[in-house]
């Protein structure tokens, strides 16, 4: 696995607040990498340090072995969490301006812009001012500005927040398309469903620290070995007192159950049947990213880093 981007022990304090505390992870080439965490966990600050917008107090970020700097900025496409465009500029002028900042100009960029605008059904709005476009169309222009210069690397901070369903799909397609072109894509989100469907690697940040990182499949495998996804009818409250149970998250009809040892799963099933619980589904090898997220961040005081490669 060749590494596209490596974040090594970066720290950032704002006054007394430790926004990011010794965060490390690696983003493999060609991967879709998700940075997960609650709001305020430190995702945006981490991304800003990766983008060289903030200088880390400690630690470094490397792009293909060299410290990130202007060269990296030229090769990256960045969609910040809070978006903004020059409202009074015309669509094409704006797109050309952002591409020119990345060092791309000329007929090739104009051509690319036109073909994207056509694909986004905006080719009739080329000469319109940004402020005359609907919010949804402004969002499209913002994606376009992110990728028009054909970046090798894309960083999207909370890309799905505030998008309508059409644009959500559009962005998802674009991400997959870029992955097919071999580009590495990083996105941050607090929406676990999306992350689970899209990413192949991830880092989970909580209170400024990485609490979990690695490939999604390996993480799921590791967590699912002790985990049962149960769909049931009846009373399972007796499970709370059982010594084999590590943790239960009960939703009434479904529950996520973690046993202390993978060998105890069969015993769990036997006990459920013995107690007269109607077991509709007993998935012993399945765990959702959301359940992993809750398991890790919901554990009070447990802040040990779990690293899976």
């Amino acid at each position: 696995m060749s590494v596209a981007l490596e974040v090594r022990e970066v720290c950032k304090n704002f006054g007394a607040i430790k926004a990011v505390d010794r965060v490390s992870f690696v983003v493999p080439e060609g991967s879709i990498f998700a940075i997960l965490g609650r709001n305020g966990a430190g995702k945006t600050t981490t991304i800003r340090m990766m983008m060289n917008i903030y200088l880390p107090d400690k630690g470094e970020v490397f792009f293909r072995g060299t410290k990130v700097g202007q060269e990296f900025k030229n090769k990256v496409g960045y969609l910040p969490e809070e978006r903004g465009l020059y409202k009074k500029m015309k669509v094409m002028d704006l797109l050309r301006f952002f591409a020119e900042l990345k060092g791309k100009r000329g007929a090739e960029i104009t051509h690319r812009a036109k073909s994207y605008l056509e694909r986004f059904q905006l080719s009739d709005r080329i000469k319109d001012k940004v402020q005359d476009l609907s919010k949804g169309n402004q969002q499209k222009i913002q994606f376009l500005a992110t990728i028009l210069h054909d970046p090798e690397f894309v960083i999207l901070d909370e890309p799905f927040s505030g998008l309508d369903p059409i644009n959500t799909n559009l962005l998802k397609d674009m991400i997959l398309e870029m992955k097919q072109q071999g580009k590495a894509i990083i996105f941050s989100t607090h929406l676990m469903d999306f992350a689970e469907k899209l990413c192949d690697h991830l880092a989970l940040i909580d209170q400024g620290r990485v609490v979990l990182s690695g490939s999604l499949s390996q993480i799921k495998e590791e967590f699912s070995r002790r985990h049962v996804h149960l769909v049931y009818k009846g009373d399972i409250s007796f499970l709370h007192d059982l010594p084999i149970i590590d943790k239960i998250e009960d939703f009434g009809n479904t529950a996520g159950i973690r046993v202390k040892d993978p060998g105890q799963i069969q015993e769990l099933l036997r006990l459920l049947v013995a107690r007269g619980v109607e077991v509709k589904k007993f998935d012993a090898d399945e765990i959702s990213l959301h359940e992993i997220f809750v398991q890790i961040t919901g554990d009070t005081g447990e802040k040990t880093s779990t690293k899976i490669r």
């Binding site: 910040p80 809070e82 978006r83 903004g84």
Partner: peptide
């Protein structure tokens, strides 16, 4: 309008 972050990414 937060254009600043896009500018600073370049």
């Amino acid at each position: 309008s937060r254009i600043i972050e896009v500018l600073l990414s370049s």
